[in-house]
Amino acid sequence: MRDLATLQFVEAHESLVLLGPPGVGKSHLAIGLGIEAISRGYRVLFLTVQDLVQELYSTLADGSTAQKLKAILSHDLIILDELGYLKMDATASDYLFQLVAKAYERRSLIVTSNLEFQEWGSLFDSPATAAAVLDRLLHHAHVITLKGESYRMRSRLAPPKANGTLPEGSAAPALRAGGRGEGGTPT
């Protein structure tokens, strides 16, 4: 994470893929890196994959898909959160492929997913589209797999101490190495 916090991957137009079950900190890390990138003058866009698909679907009515993709791709770092929670139809699969293909070697992507790569074939409309997305996304990528219990569930299931605070280890740790912690505060 210290190497990623230098943002060399953004300068080199590489991608970062964060994999793991819900609640292990994928989005937290992606947001922390995004905030650090903004503080260094990079243009950053954060979207859930569902929001991306909805925004691109809305362009069907007026034929402005190419312009919308161009606007998205004007950012140095594009963070796509929550890939894998909803199966994509042919149109959504095509949109995501177009974005990844156009960003390839030109822009940096951070993608978070709860699915292992071998499961992506069932997420996209066709396994061929999943393979094409993975081919481009992973060619120049850093892949980090996070494991563990959900921070959200851990803090909900842990009984509070007598003084009302949570037991040690039940709150999510802040992003270190020059990143940002909870609420965007420097750590």
Rank of each mutant, 00 (worst) to 15 (best):
L4F: 11
A5Y: 08
A5S: 14
L7C: 08
L7P: 15
F9W: 14
V10I: 15
E11V: 15
H13K: 15
S15N: 15
L18F: 05
V24D: 01
K26L: 06
L29T: 06
I31D: 07
G32F: 04
G32K: 04
L33C: 01
L33I: 09
L33E: 01
E36K: 12
A37D: 02
I38V: 11
S39D: 08
S39C: 09
R40N: 00
Y42L: 00
R43C: 04
V44L: 00
L47P: 11
V49S: 06
Q50H: 13
D51H: 10
L52A: 08
L52Q: 01
Y57S: 13
S58I: 06
S58P: 07
S58M: 11
T59W: 03
L60A: 12
D62L: 03
T65S: 03
A66L: 08
L69Q: 10
L69S: 05
A71E: 15
I72H: 08
I72T: 14
D76C: 07
L77R: 13
D81F: 02
G84C: 13
G84E: 09
Y85V: 11
M88E: 04
D89C: 07
A92W: 07
S93K: 06
D94K: 08
K102T: 10
E105S: 04
S108Y: 00
I110H: 01
T112P: 01
N114E: 01
E116T: 15
F117N: 05
F117R: 10
E119K: 15
G121K: 03
S126V: 11
A130Y: 09
A130N: 06
A131G: 02
R136M: 01
R136E: 00
L137I: 05
L137P: 07
L138E: 00
L138I: 01
H139S: 05
A141S: 12
V143E: 02
V143T: 07
V143L: 10
T145M: 10
G148I: 13
E149I: 14
S150C: 00
S150Q: 00
R152N: 11
R152V: 04
S155N: 09
R156N: 11
L157W: 02
A158S: 10
P159M: 02
G164V: 06
E168L: 13
G169Y: 08
A171C: 08
A174C: 10
A174K: 05
G178T: 11
G178D: 10
G178E: 13
G179L: 10
E182A: 11
E182G: 09
G183M: 03
G184L: 09
T187P: 15
